[in-house]
Amino acid sequence: MKPKKKTIGLLIYLGLLMIPLYWMLNMSLRSNADILASFALYPKDITFVNYLKIFTDSSWYMGYVNSIIYVTMNTIISLTVALPAAYAFSRYQFVGDKQLFFWLLTNRMAPAAIFALPFFQLYSAIGLMDTHIAVALAHCLFNVPLSVWILEGFMSGVPREIDETAFIDGYSFPRFFITIFIPLIRAGVGVTAFFCFMFSWVELLFSRTLTVTEAKPIAAIMTRTISATGLDYGLLAAAGMLTIVPGILVIWFVRNHMAKGFALGRV
């Protein structure tokens, strides 16, 4: 009897989780005029006009391209620098290790709003304003510490005898690290990449502050629909639906390790 009650509770929760998403889907399949004219629980005349506009207007679809470019850049940079550092934290004791680790974490906890203005000035000064790399670097502020943290958790789970054996067998550090160690924690690397992707993808403040037109992310472009002729709800909903797609794709790849990743590799 009891397991049934649990399942019903779970299904209610999942239902409530999906309703706002369903509503956005509903809106995205109706024209703006239709939306404002009548209230409907489901689209009576399904129209793809909103999606069509996004896919044909370069100022719209370039937003997605821009987001994907800087998110990818950020993921690559974060992983490249975080892997050796996480190894150092999980294996070695060195002067200032604890302080350094804490300092890194404070950046994950710092209010992004603090950095918005200085970033604007910093990247303007070095001529990187409105480029993908500027956003990618800015997102490193929170993604690199997070990557180090998650990877360190996964690496600590690998027994150190493996390293010792490899060094005794005459492996050089880079060769050991790339051919033996990284494959051992590939689930951790995948999960970390997922998190870098996720946090870079969902962030708005930096990406909006540091871009004007050339590298403007989809999230920032969406705020555009609020001007001119009032809100175009249909278009807004369609753009929103499309931002969910990449997320669902990456979740699918890491679904088996996701829970462990959210626990920062520490279960």
């Binding site: 999942l14 706002p20 509503w23 969902v202 929103g240 969910i244 979740i251 088996n256």
Partner: peptide, 26 residues
């Protein structure tokens, strides 16, 4: 398990301003 995990994680992967948008519409 997979079905639940993926469904539950969806809100976490939506850009934060889109979350706002979803709830305006809702």
């Amino acid at each position: 398990v997979s079905a639940c995990l993926v469904t539950i994680a969806i809100p976490l992967l939506i850009p934060w301003n889109v979350i706002g948008t979803i709830w305006i519409i809702f």
